[in-house]
Amino acid sequence: MTAALTALTLLLHGDSVSSSRIEVSGREARVTFTFSMEDLAELARLDLDRDGTVEPEEWTQVLPALFSYLGDRFRIDGCRSEGDPLLVPPATTLKDRRAPVTLRMRYVSAGPLDRLRIRCDLFHEHEGAPRHVAEGPGGRVMVFDRERPEIDGFSAAKPSRAWMVGGSVAAVILAAVLLSRPGSRAAAA
């Protein structure tokens, strides 16, 4: 019965939804992904001992395969990717299909990362309309889907910091201009 009631408040969707948070520092972008257990379970056999729970040891064994998939399906132009094996998900039961699972990847570039060109086709092999919501520096959000798998010019700079730097430079120039005026110097003296 409850399922029928749930239908009133929420429609069922066949679409995979994942998300990521991107942090850029120098030549490296750290991308922290969040997936549903359901989606990851369709990528690889996670519960190796078939006891219904994916233990940290089992995660450690399947992480390389998952990192390889992520490296192929979420690419940042000009970067090589590698998974972060230190972030191992906790024990998660397979029955909790909506449980979020967090994985982290590092994308390293030869030069500084000012603007990111990202290609994301995560879960495009699944049915429906898979979507990925990426959040960049400064709260910027980009939504990838089948029709929009690539986004160019995702700014790597934090807008607030850019404004702060710009504002500081402008303040210094303004102060220098004011101080260089003869009247100002006399007043300061």
């Binding site: 066949g14 679409d15 939804v17 998300s19 969040t34 549903s36 979507r131 919501v133 939504v143």
Partner: peptide
Amino acid sequence: YRASGDPVFLARRARANPAAADE
């Protein structure tokens, strides 16, 4: 949104996140 895939929650996010509202 992640748990349901229901785009209604994307629309509601727009109200809570003015910086990313258009997207």
